[in-house]
Design a protein around this nucleic acid. Structure first.
Lengths: 145, 145
DNA sequence: CAATCAACCTATTGACATACTATGTTGATA
DNA sequence: TATCAACATAGTATGTCAATAGGTTGATTG
């Protein structure tokens, strides 16, 4: 299950996209707008910086900016950065296939297929889609139709 | 991410399906075959019993049996029983929609769509599919083709 | 009846993750 | 040099995970 880390990270990116400015946005402002602890957001911002999704500038007038335009920043990127991985099971988390059951595992193909399904879906939604309210290729606004 | 609880639960069900007998299968036998702690499997078995996926009989000659034929037991049933929920985010876990952001949440439609995607996928794979090595409608055996 | 087997039940444990809070230090601007 | 903000490190309360331990109930056997 996606934790607050991943969900807050999305809200930070959406907030940045909504400001749509060239001036860096202080994290304190984002925290206030989103109603999230600023100190906690620092940790999440660090994850996003480390993965090159946002860039931070120190000092007066500093803040954060998206490293790429919102259309080129996918939800898969953000969630993977915040959560560490999007893999549904541990044996698919990193390239270390150290599971000794992998050759006889009856469930591995199912997990692999689901892993692709998940990554395809979240890669098809961008921050721009979320900020606009249109979920891109996977628009879910017509769920009830 | 699916924990050992969910993964072990699947292995218990697959093991039961593979025995394909009317005689109850002791958990100790399953634990030995699968190389899993028997005491830990007890907790997982309880979850499966509580959700009506398997039935246990006490006493000598006792053990567990699938409550339904393997073709009618979906992976979604098993994972939901073991993990508690298959929802990708907390606000979709139970019917308690107590999130005060739900009417303005920019990501909720995306989560709802993914929730459907997930449940559709895991509902399309049965224990019989896994035991046979053919993943049903979502066969992933031709991933490399 | 009693021994055995197996499910069932409660609790406890160590390790780890989550969701924070607190307190600095560095760096850039005014 | 005062201020602002990112960056860094440490700590805390709570909970889950993955097991382990020990006892109770229930059903089949000799």
């Amino acid at each position: 299950m996606i934790s607050t880390k991943g969900r807050y990270a999305l809200r930070v990116l959406i907030d940045l996209a909504e400001q749509g400015t060239d001036a860096p946005v202080p994290l304190k402002d984002i925290a206030k707008r989103q109603g999230i602890s600023g100190q906690y957001l620092q940790h999440i911002a660090k994850l996003l910086v480390d993965q090159g999704l946002i860039v931070g500038t120190s000092g007066k007038g500093g803040g954060y900016l998206m490293a790429r335009p919102p259309q080129e920043c996918t939800v898969a990127d953000v969630l993977a950065a915040a959560e560490g991985t999007l893999a549904p099971v541990a044996c698919l988390a990193c390239e270390t296939v150290d599971c000794d059951r992998s050759d006889t595992c009856k469930t591995l193909p199912m997990w692999q297929k689901f892993d692709l399904l998940t990554k395809d879906y979240f890669s098809s939604v961008t921050i721009a889609d979320l900020a606009n309210g249109t979920n891109g290729a996977n628009d879910a606004s017509n769920l009830t139709s």
